[in-house]
């Protein structure tokens, strides 16, 4: 018997909350928001799996495909496929890709050289890439900052991220060079914080 106090993930209202947070994040790249209030209700042991599952329940169904390359991703992939009926595809065919922000450079290069970026006629077919990072830092305490500009940002915004390989950013700049084609990135932490880097977002910073 579930207790009345225990909060259960609501497929209507919690996915609506996650969608609106995503929409807000994508409308304002670099702005950090949180989907923890909704994802925290999912009964999963691994906090990162809660966040991925919450995003998956919001976006995925039988009409789209996804791919996961994270720790214990196989298990997660299976559970998401069963819950959403979305197709599991290799990353070069997937609409939505979930991956670790750390990860070796060869792997990142391989994924990013085959990722879907859409076509001039259908740029919206470019993939959405969700990367798990460690955390977003307080602006005042770090020197390794990125400066973002582009649609959704009034002049510039600064962002600092721990736990992301620089290779992701180098490759991101490469695949987004031919706008309107490109990939849209969402960075998230196991704690449920997230921020978006859209294909229109210009990122300047150390090593990028």
């Amino acid at each position: 018997m579930p207790s009345a106090k225990e909060q259960v993930f609501d497929r209507i209202h919690d996915t609506q909350f996650i969608y609106r947070t995503l929409l807000e994040a994508m409308s304002r790249p670099g702005h950090v928001s949180s989907i923890a209030p909704a994802c925290g209700k999912l009964e999963l042991a691994d906090p990162a799996h809660k966040i991925v599952t919450g995003l998956a329940l919001t976006l995925l169904d039988g009409e789209v495909s996804f791919s996961i390359s994270m720790k214990r991703g196989g298990e997660l992939e299976d559970s998401i496929r069963k819950q959403t009926f979305s197709q599991v595809q290799p990353s070069e065919k997937a609409d939505y890709i979930f991956a670790d922000g750390s990860g070796d450079e060869d792997y990142i290069r391989e994924l990013m050289s085959s990722v879907r970026t859409g076509t001039l006629l259908a740029p919206e077919a470019g993939a959405t890439l969700f990367l798990m990072v460690d955390h977003f830092n307080n602006e005042n305490t770090v020197t390794d900052q990125w400066t973002l500009s582009g649609p959704g940002i009034m002049e510039t915004r600064t962002l600092s991220v721990s736990g992301i390989s620089k290779e992701w950013m180098t490759e991101r700049a490469r695949v987004n060079a031919e706008y309107p084609m490109g990939v849209d990135m969402v960075l998230f932490t196991p704690g449920g914080q997230m921020t978006a880097l859209m294909r229109t977002t210009k990122v300047r910073g150390v090593g990028i």
């Binding site: 996915t15 994508m26 919001t58 976006l59 169904d61 789209v64 740029p123 309107p180 294909r199």
Partner: peptide, 29 residues
């Protein structure tokens, strides 16, 4: 009715498309 009339599958599709619309300002999805 479902909350806000539309079924969840329809909402999901419209939500996915609206996110791509935000990604490519002015492009008709």
């Amino acid at each position: 009715y479902n909350f806000a009339f539309l079924d969840e599958g329809s909402k999901r599709e419209i939500r996915r498309k609206s996110l791509k619309a935000v990604a490519i300002p002015g492009y008709q999805v």
